[in-house]
């Protein structure tokens, strides 16, 4: 019964909430009305917006020494998680069978292990940094902590189910993934998509004034 619910209706519900939620939230940001920019246009905003989306992947050198830990741990975590999500053998099979109908070559086993280590260590260090750095701690909301811990739980349940033998462990992982998908559009996890309009807006705003932000 539980297996049917988790593999069936709850999965479809979580996909629906995720899909509709992300589109709605992104749309509400992108199509929000903005006050007219009355400054003198010294340069083109468009190309600057596009450029800023990518240039922000490397921090400005004025602050880079202060944010070494979130930078390194951040990349460890995000790259590791991306590799796990889209190139781990069980995930590639899952996406092929349940969602897309086509698959691709997954990564070899040693790469999976390395990605998992990076992702776990990165997330632990990132969350601890949020707790220890006084500024981060002050500006962090409950949502920020929930997001970190929920993502950690999803990864942990995935780790538990690695033997791919016990159905209960696989269902537990699937269930936490569904919770994560449902929580996604209402949380800080939306940064997955909103970083693009956010950086683009900043780039456009300053680029129009001829400043390389």
């Amino acid at each position: 019964m539980i297996e049917y619910l988790i593999d069936g209706p709850l999965w479809h519900l979580s996909l629906a909430v995720f899909g509709i939620g992300v589109v709605w939230k992104l749309g509400s940001i992108v199509f929000a009305s903005r006050r007219q920019d009355l400054s003198v246009a010294r340069a083109a905003a468009g190309p600057a917006a596009f450029k800023t989306v990518f240039s922000r992947f490397i921090p400005h050198k004025e602050i880079s020494s202060q944010i070494v830990i979130p930078l390194v741990a951040g990349y460890m975590f995000h790259l590791g998680l991306f590799a796990l999500l889209f190139f781990a053998v069980p995930h590639v099979s899952f996406l092929e069978q349940n969602l897309l109908g086509f698959g691709w070559t997954p990564m070899p086993h040693w790469a999976f292990i390395v990605s998992a280590q990076l992702a776990f260590l990165g997330l632990i260090i990132l969350w601890l940094r949020r707790m220890t750095n006084p500024v981060s701690r002050l500006i962090s909301t409950l949502d920020d902590h929930v997001v970190a811990i929920l993502t950690f739980v999803v990864m942990l349940t995935g780790c538990f189910a690695l033997l791919e033998g016990a159905t209960a462990l696989r269902l537990l992982h699937r269930f936490t993934v569904e919770l994560w998908l449902i929580y996604f559009p209402f949380s800080a996890l939306m940064h997955t998509f909103t970083f693009i309009p956010s950086r683009a807006f900043t780039g456009a705003w300053f680029g129009r004034r001829g400043i390389d932000a």
Partner: peptide
């Protein structure tokens, strides 16, 4: 027989 892998059943 891989490292870090489960040995299987």
């Amino acid at each position: 027989e891989a490292a870090f892998s489960s040995r299987g059943k």
